[in-house]
Amino acid sequence: MSLDAVMKRSWPAVYAYIRASGRRSDEAMDLTQAFICDVFLARRLLEKADQARGRFRTLLIGAVRNYLADVHRRANATTRMPKGGISAIDDYKAKGFDVTGDESVGSSPERAFNARYVAEIIRVASERLQRELESAGDGVSWELFRLRVLHAAFQGDATGYDQIAPRLGIDKGTCAARLLTAKRRFANILMEELRATMIDPNDLRDEVADLMALLNNR
């Protein structure tokens, strides 16, 4: 996975950790940008990850914790900003995603980090599934997955087949069958995305178990 891809996936979780540590939203964003410059880029975090052969999520959360311990002045968060900003963050904002809300407030930094990390993995996998299904002309299956799976995971409720089937013009049995196919493909995509974050492939099973536990605790 490229450095830019890793930064795009990781920075919302870094922001959530910093925000939950008690920083204001603007200060947390400044510190997130500084962390990317100082640790991801200047200290070559990915190279250290390859050498450490541990799980990247564990390495990342430790790096953020240590970075905050070293920060004494807020000025440190603005003096190292590269001209033009950081593309990983700018691209995220341009697409309309917002991680600067207050969902991290009141959570422990570790819990906020893990919740956002899980959300990012699922977002990336869901976007891949959506592109695949819609490019194959199967927007119906994507809509089923969105209403039945994503709504349940992130909003706490799932639209019933009695409501979905008439809207999509198919019967409930077809809804269930197509949703099952979409779920299976999503599971495969999710495994591929998780595998891409693994420094040691042997950690994949443990990371999947952790992901499911974190998702259930959202």
Rank of each mutant, 00 (worst) to 15 (best):
D90P: 01
L204W: 02
T159S: 11
R131C: 01
L211I: 04
Q163F: 11
R19E: 01
W11P: 00
D102R: 07
D157F: 15
R73H: 13
T181W: 06
I170V: 15
L46G: 04
P166C: 06
W11H: 11
N66V: 11
G156D: 05
S2T: 11
G173R: 09
A16V: 02
P12N: 01
A152R: 14
I189A: 10
R178H: 12
R53N: 14
V14T: 00
L168G: 04
T78C: 07
I18D: 03
L46T: 04
H151W: 01
A77T: 02
H151D: 04
F154K: 06
D138E: 10
L215P: 00
Q51K: 13
A125H: 04
L31V: 03
D138T: 03
A119G: 10
I61R: 09
P166I: 10
L168D: 14
L59V: 08
P166K: 05
D70F: 05
R55M: 11
K83C: 02
E47W: 05
A5Q: 06
G62Q: 13
E47M: 08
D200K: 13
D38M: 05
V118E: 13
S87T: 14
R146S: 09
L45W: 02
A115M: 05
C37Q: 08
V140E: 13
A158L: 11
I61N: 04
L194W: 08
G22D: 10
E193N: 14
G54Q: 15
R24N: 06
R195E: 15
R74L: 15
G96F: 04
Y161P: 11
A125P: 04
A5H: 04
K8G: 04
I199M: 13
R73V: 05
V71F: 04
A209W: 12
R178T: 10
A165V: 01
L3Y: 12
L194R: 01
D98C: 12
A125D: 06
I36P: 00
R23F: 14
I122T: 11
A28S: 01
R205F: 14
M81N: 09
F56G: 06
H72F: 07
I164N: 05
F40Y: 08
T159D: 12
N202H: 14
G139R: 07
A52E: 15
E27K: 08
R24T: 15
A75S: 12
S87N: 11
M7S: 02
Y17W: 10
G85P: 12
W142P: 03
A153W: 14
R146C: 02
I189Q: 09
D26L: 10
A75P: 00
G62W: 00
M1Y: 03
T197E: 15
E132P: 05
D90K: 15
A182Y: 08
N188F: 03
T79E: 09
C37Y: 00
A94N: 12
R111H: 09
L41M: 01
S21Y: 05
A176W: 07
D171P: 04
F113I: 09
Y92R: 11
L147V: 06
A165N: 09
L147E: 12
V64I: 08
S135P: 00
F35Q: 01
L3F: 10
G85E: 06
Q155S: 13
I89G: 00
G101T: 09
R43P: 06
R65C: 09
M29C: 07
N76A: 15
R111F: 01
A34N: 02
